[in-house]
């Protein structure tokens, strides 16, 4: 009962914030609402017994990536930008895409309505203790992807430094 309430609260928060992210004129406010959306998602993770992922989401996404975003917004912040037109005229494209997506989802739900709502979830204990399990999989079964991801990060870091460096 409490679990479900928490989920619906966070889901509503996430969707509301997401809508505000794409509709606010001011990029800083968009960023603030994106942080809210990310934290709401983190709450949903916690509700799903994914504690480690919850904290990864908070530290990395909300605390790390979004700080980077806010930084860059402030670096390139132009007062002029506020007076420019913030939306282009492709709203009909967006409408079509959304409509198609909605249709697909509706179709998918219609087809698998029965299973979608009746599949029993595995017991919550199967994910405990969360941190240890994640670590085991990460460093055991997914060792190679893990290393590849670290190389990806290294490349991204070098790339970001090179690109953001002042031209001499």
């Amino acid at each position: 009962m409490l679990d479900q309430g928490v989920f619906y609260f966070f889901a509503a928060l996430a969707i509301l914030s997401a809508i505000l992210v794409v509709t606010r004129r001011n990029a800083v406010q968009s960023a603030i609402f994106l942080v809210t959306a990310l934290l709401a998602t983190a709450g949903i993770f916690l509700n799903l017994n994914a504690e480690f992922l919850f904290i990864v989401q908070v530290i990395l996404y909300a605390g790390g990536i979004m700080v980077l975003f806010v930084f860059v917004i402030m670096l390139v912040n132009l007062d002029v930008a506020l007076h420019q037109v913030q939306f282009n005229r492709q709203w009909f494209v967006a409408l079509i895409v959304s409509a198609v997506l909605a249709a697909q989802v509706a179709a998918a739900i219609a087809v698998s309505r029965r299973t979608l709502y009746t599949v029993p979830a595995a017991p919550a204990e199967s994910l405990e203790p969360n941190t240890e399990r994640v670590a085991f999989y990460l460093f055991h079964n997914y060792m190679l992807p893990f290393e590849i991801a670290s190389i990806l990060l290294l490349v991204a870091m070098v790339g970001a430094v090179v690109m953001a460096k002042k031209r001499v």
Partner: peptide
Amino acid sequence: LLAIGIVGIVTRRNVII
């Protein structure tokens, strides 16, 4: 969330957003 994200990508002009 996916749909909102797509709407944002398609309609916004600001690259950061």
